[in-house]
């Protein structure tokens, strides 16, 4: 048993250090309240909120593959459909608030970068109609 004593002490110290660092990290998170997300325009989402929260990236990537590669488009499940429902309409938007604050606020809170709207348009259909179909 004596042969392992040094190892036990070392292991114990590592676990203790891990616990202390974890505790300090949690202390730093105390003030971070989850963002209040804008209300969606539609009635119901395609999936349960919990499931969508975890699987929306895979879901979108799968839809993209089916639409682009196979040409099987499903407007109700497209990214544009997400935008049309979740974007804040131009009239209700605060200055400097992006249309898809719904996505962006949560991604900022969780610290996950969101690249979708670097290329995809984030304006809902209603917005575009107000602009007369011509982008600024």
């Amino acid at each position: 048993m004596k042969r392992f004593e040094g190892w036990l002490w070392g292991g114990g110290a590592a676990v203790a250090l891990f616990a202390v660092i974890g505790f300090i990290a949690l202390l730093g998170d105390r003030g971070a309240a989850p963002p209040v997300l804008p209300e969606p325009q539609g009635e119901a989402c395609l999936l349960e909120a919990e499931q969508m929260r975890r699987e929306h990236a895979d879901w979108l990537s799968d839809r993209m593959h089916t639409a682009v590669r196979l040409g099987e488009r499903d407007p109700a499940r497209s990214l544009q459909a997400c935008v049309d429902c979740h974007a804040v309409p131009a009239a209700q938007r605060a200055p400097e608030q992006p249309p898809m604050a719904f996505c962006r606020d949560c991604h900022t809170y969780t610290g996950v970068s969101i690249g979708c709207f670097q290329c995809h348009n984030e304006r809902p259909k209603g917005d575009l109609a107000e602009l007369g179909g011509v982008l600024p």
């Binding site: 040409g71 488009r73 670097q118 290329c119 995809h120 348009n121 304006r123 982008l135 600024p136």
Partner: peptide
């Protein structure tokens, strides 16, 4: 950098592009 892409066709700096034969319309 691309100013604002059309909802019909997402596009961005650094990704190749060309005529799609308006695939979004053809599929409709």
């Amino acid at each position: 950098p691309v100013a604002e892409a059309s909802p019909n066709h997402p596009r961005g700096k650094g990704a190749a592009e060309g005529c799609t034969l308006c695939v979004h319309r053809v599929d409709r």
